[in-house]
């Protein structure tokens, strides 16, 4: 099978040079063809595991982080907010 690697890259927000794209496509096709050898198993419906149920959290407000601390790693900050290229929607 051939994979539309550029479409996949677009979904993943990656940019691939053409030679790189071809290389990745080939690697992926190899892996995918390996995967195609997986045996077909009976489909048991949705992927759930009721034997390991979730433990819930109580609805309690806790700990407080300082905004400065939270934004310290951000590439661009203004007026207490992270700045990104202008978006309209």
């Amino acid at each position: 099978m051939t994979i539309d690697i550029q479409h996949v890259a677009k979904l993943a927000k990656l940019r691939l040079e053409e030679d790189q794209a071809q290389r990745f496509a080939k690697d992926m096709e190899n892996i995918v063809s390996m995967v195609q050898q997986l045996p077909d198993l009976p489909d048991t419906g949705a992927l759930i595991d009721p034997d390991h149920p979730m433990i819930f959290r109580g609805d309690v407000v806790e700990h407080h982080y300082d905004r400065k601390e939270l934004l310290a790693n951000a590439p661009q900050v203004k007026a207490g907010c992270v700045v990104v290229p202008k978006v309209v929607e």
Binding site: V8, A9, L11, A12, L16, F24, D27, M28
Partner: peptide
Amino acid sequence: KRRILLGTFVLS
């Protein structure tokens, strides 16, 4: 990147 692409593909 290789793994992100593979993962994106198998979920698409």
